[in-house]
Simulated assay, not measured.
Amino acid sequence: MIRLEKLTKIFDTPNGQVVAARDVDMEVPEGEICVLLGPSGCGKTTALKMINRLVSPTSGKIFIDGEDTSKLNDVQLRRNIGYVIQQIGLFPNMTIEENICVVPKLLGWDRAKATSRAKELLDLVGLDANLFMKRFPKELSGGQQQRVGVIRALAADPPVMLMDEPFGAIDPINREVIQDEFLKMQAEIKKTIMFVSHDIDEAVKMGDKIAIFREGMIEQYDSPDTVLAHPVNAFVADFVGADRTLKRLRLVSVEEVADPNAPTVSRHSKAKDVLSAVQQSIARVAVVIDSDHKPLGYVTADMLEGARGNVGDLAKPLPAVVPFRADLRAVVSEMFAHDIMWLTAVDDAGRFVGVVTQPAVTGALGETYRADVAQAMT
C-alpha cells in the first residue's frame, strides 16, 4: 500500500518558485495499479519521483506499507521499490541475465538463486530463458528490451513498483502486446504500482484507479469506470474525451455480458424441434455446435419457420466469433464490420460460451449510471 499525505514540491528557479505538486493526497491499495494522468507539466511525474526520492519533497509524508519513508535512507528506500522508465536503461555491456540480476547481486543473493529468478521472470513475460539469458540488449527488439526492463525492476521482488511511461516508446501493436503481458503478470504477482501515462486509453486499460492531475493537484481520483462515467468537472471531462462512454467498452469483458443460456443445437437436430426455443431467445438465433461444443454455424427463427429436415442443412456460417476474454470494443467492432446485432463468444479452446447481443452491450454501459441514480435515491 502507498499513501501520500499533503505531498508538495516547490522548485526554485531563476524566475521564482514553481509549485510542481501541491497537497497531493491519495492511497493506492496493496496489489492495485494507480495510473497518474494529466497534461504535460501537471505534476504527475514529480509526484511519482518523490516516492523513491529522485525528487525530494518540500513537505508532506509518504508511507509504504504503513512505514514512513522519510526514516529510510535513499539506498534502503530504493531497494524496496522497482523503477521502470520509458528509456529502459539496460546496461549494454551486460547480458540479459546480468541486467536482471543487478539488484539481487547488490542484495547479496547467491548466483544460483539470482539465475533462477531471472529465468522465472523471463518466462513470465513470454521470453524463452534458454534463448535470451546470454544475449546482450542490442540483440533484442525494442519491445523485448522493454519487457526485460520491467522484469529487472521485479527481480528482487519489491513490494512497490513505479513506472514512468514505460510503454510510451513502443509502437502501437507491440504496446498492446506488452500491456497484455504485463496485466497477466500483475494478476499473478499483485504488486502495488504507480504508473505515469499521458494516454487515457492506456490508463483505462491498465489502472484499477486513475488520478487526474492539473497544475500539481489531483482533480479526480477514482476507478476508470467512474472517471469516464462521472467526471467531476469540465477539465476532467475534456481530458478524458467526448467519447468517454465508448472508452468504457474497454472495461467490460465479453464473458461478463455473454448469455450462456442462448440456444445451441446439434446439426442433426430437426428444424421443427428447435423452432420454439429459437423464437423465445433474445436474438432469435440458435448456434449450431459439434460434439465438442464448438460452434459450426447458426440458424434463425425465420430460417426454421416451416422448414423440414436437419438444422445442419439450413445453417449459415457464423460471420465472426469473439473470445470471451476480449473487451466490448472488439464486440462492437465486429458488429459494425458485419452489420449484425449479435455474436457468438468462445473460450480459449474455441468452445461456445454464449451469445452477446447489442442490447446486452448497451445495458452494460448503462449499469454505472443506473447504480448511481439508485444510490442517490436511497
Score class of each variant (00 low, 15 high):
312 G>H: 09
78 R>A: 05
306 G>E: 02
181 E>Y: 07
58 T>R: 05
249 L>M: 07
48 L>I: 02
185 M>Q: 07
173 I>G: 02
239 F>P: 09
239 F>M: 06
139 E>Q: 15
378 T>A: 11
169 A>D: 07
350 G>C: 03
162 L>E: 08
238 D>K: 15
236 V>T: 04
92 P>G: 08
105 K>I: 00
161 M>L: 15
84 V>N: 09
234 A>V: 13
154 L>N: 08
102 V>S: 02
160 V>Y: 04
205 K>F: 05
255 E>W: 10
13 T>M: 11
48 L>V: 01
179 Q>M: 10
211 A>C: 13
213 F>M: 11
174 N>H: 12
215 E>M: 13
44 K>P: 12
378 T>M: 13
92 P>T: 08
146 Q>E: 09
338 H>T: 03
293 H>A: 10
369 Y>K: 10
325 R>L: 11
182 F>N: 02
135 R>I: 06
151 I>G: 06
235 F>H: 05
297 G>T: 06
270 K>L: 15
163 M>V: 06
246 L>D: 14
50 M>F: 04
351 R>K: 14
198 H>F: 08
157 D>A: 11
312 G>N: 11
148 V>I: 15
110 D>W: 04
335 M>I: 13
4 L>A: 09
357 T>W: 06
179 Q>I: 07
337 A>C: 01
51 I>N: 04
378 T>D: 10
196 V>N: 12
335 M>N: 13
88 I>V: 15
318 L>T: 07
128 D>F: 02
83 Y>K: 05
117 R>W: 01
114 A>I: 05
25 D>V: 01
23 D>S: 05
117 R>Q: 09
14 P>M: 12
161 M>A: 07
226 T>N: 14
328 L>V: 09
100 I>M: 07
42 C>S: 15
32 E>D: 04
266 S>P: 07
138 K>T: 01
75 V>E: 12
355 V>D: 03
86 Q>D: 04
66 G>Y: 10
264 T>H: 00
334 E>D: 13
62 I>D: 03
303 M>W: 04
22 R>V: 00
29 P>A: 12
273 D>M: 02
280 Q>W: 00
28 V>G: 05
2 I>C: 08
268 H>W: 12
330 A>W: 01
56 S>P: 00
338 H>E: 09
278 V>E: 03
168 G>M: 09
131 L>I: 14
97 E>F: 12
353 V>S: 01
61 K>H: 09
32 E>I: 01
8 T>D: 03
2 I>W: 08
63 F>G: 09
109 W>E: 05
76 Q>A: 13
173 I>W: 05
297 G>W: 12
66 G>R: 05
341 M>R: 14
290 D>T: 01
74 D>Q: 14
173 I>R: 13
314 L>R: 09
290 D>C: 07
157 D>I: 06
115 T>P: 00
366 G>S: 14
157 D>Y: 04
77 L>A: 04
363 G>R: 15
136 F>G: 04
104 P>S: 03
91 F>I: 14
73 N>P: 03
5 E>N: 06
308 R>L: 11
13 T>C: 10
162 L>G: 02
107 L>D: 03
266 S>W: 07
117 R>G: 02
